[in-house]
Lab assay of single mutants.
Amino acid sequence: RERTTFTRSQLEELEALFAKTQYPDVYAREEVALKINLPESRVQVWFKNRRAKCRQ
């Protein structure tokens, strides 16, 4: 699998949801995934990595 490159608009959507909740449920992830045209699994991994970045 190729590394996913997020567009600015995708990142804005993801960061907006992250500001609301660092642990979105599957419904919130699927909703944003549809909105930004990415698989839910990519959204899930983005949140995992974003939380790790936050802890550093």
Rank of each mutant, 00 (worst) to 15 (best):
E13G: 06
P24N: 02
I36P: 00
P39R: 05
Y27F: 15
Y23F: 12
Q44H: 10
E12H: 08
A28W: 02
L38V: 14
N49K: 07
Q22A: 08
V45I: 13
L17N: 03
A33Y: 00
V32E: 03
V32K: 00
L38A: 12
T4N: 08
R1L: 07
Q56K: 03
V26G: 10
L34S: 13
W46I: 03
E40F: 05
R29W: 02
L17K: 04
I36C: 15
N49C: 08
L34T: 14
Q22M: 15
P24Y: 00
Q10S: 04
E40L: 13
F6E: 09
K53N: 07
C54I: 14
K35M: 06
V43F: 02
C54T: 11
E40P: 11
C54H: 14
R1T: 15
V32R: 00
T21A: 07
E31C: 13
R8S: 15
A19I: 10
A16F: 07
S9Y: 13
V26A: 14
T7N: 07
P24V: 00
L34R: 15
K53V: 12
R1Y: 02
E31P: 00
Q56R: 12
A52Y: 08
E13V: 12
T5H: 05
Q56G: 10
E15L: 03
A28L: 10
E12M: 12
K53L: 12
P24E: 00
K20G: 03
E2F: 06
L11R: 09
F6Y: 15
F6W: 08
E2V: 06
E31V: 10
Q44E: 11
R3D: 15
V43W: 02
E12Q: 11
T21W: 04
V32Q: 02
K35T: 05
P39Q: 06
V45M: 03
D25F: 02
L11T: 10
A28I: 08
R51A: 04
Q10N: 02
T7L: 04
T7A: 08
K20V: 11
N37R: 13
L11I: 15
E31T: 14
F6T: 07
P39S: 09
N37W: 03
P24C: 00
R8T: 10
N49V: 06
R50F: 02
T5K: 13
A52W: 06
A19Q: 09
T4S: 10
Q22H: 11
T4C: 04
R55E: 11
Y23Q: 08
Y27T: 14
K53W: 05
A28N: 06
R1A: 02
R8E: 13
R50D: 00
R3S: 13
T7V: 04
A28K: 13
E13I: 07
K53S: 13
A16V: 09
P24T: 01
Q22E: 14
E31A: 12
R1W: 06
Y23I: 05
P39E: 08
L38P: 00
S41Y: 08
K53C: 14
Y27W: 11
R55Y: 07
K20S: 05
R50Y: 03
S9A: 14
T21P: 01
T5D: 14
Y23L: 04
R42T: 11
R29M: 08
D25T: 12
Q22L: 04
W46C: 01
A52M: 09
K35H: 04
F6A: 04
T21F: 06
A19W: 06
R1H: 15
E12A: 13
K20Q: 07
E13C: 13
V43P: 00
I36N: 05
A33P: 00
T7D: 10
E40Y: 06
K35G: 03
I36T: 12
S41W: 10
R42F: 04
E15I: 02
F6G: 04
L38Q: 09
A19D: 13
T7K: 06
Q10V: 03
N49R: 11
L14I: 01
P24I: 02
P24H: 00
E13R: 06
A33T: 02
V26C: 13
N37G: 14
L14A: 00
L38S: 08
R50L: 01
V32Y: 02
A19M: 08
V26N: 06
Q10K: 02
R8H: 14
Q10P: 03
T4Q: 08
Q10G: 03
A52E: 15
R8G: 10
A19R: 10
A28T: 08
T4P: 15
A19T: 12
V45A: 09
L38H: 10
Q56T: 11
K48E: 09
Q44G: 10
K53M: 15
T7C: 08
L14C: 02
R50Q: 15
E13W: 06
P39K: 09
R42A: 14
R29Y: 06
R1N: 05
R50V: 01
R55F: 06
Q56V: 11
V43K: 01
A16H: 09
R3M: 12
W46D: 00
D25C: 07
E40N: 05
R51W: 02
P39D: 10
L11S: 06
L14R: 01
Q56L: 04
S9L: 13
I36V: 07
R3F: 07
A33M: 03
R8I: 08
Y23A: 06
A33S: 10
S9K: 15
L34G: 13
R55G: 14
W46N: 00
E31R: 14
L11E: 15
R29I: 09
E2N: 11
F6H: 07
L14H: 00
Y27H: 15
R29H: 02
N49G: 07
C54E: 15
V43A: 04
S41K: 10
K20F: 05
V45W: 15
A16N: 10
S41C: 11
L38W: 08
K53R: 14
V45K: 05
L11K: 10
F6N: 05
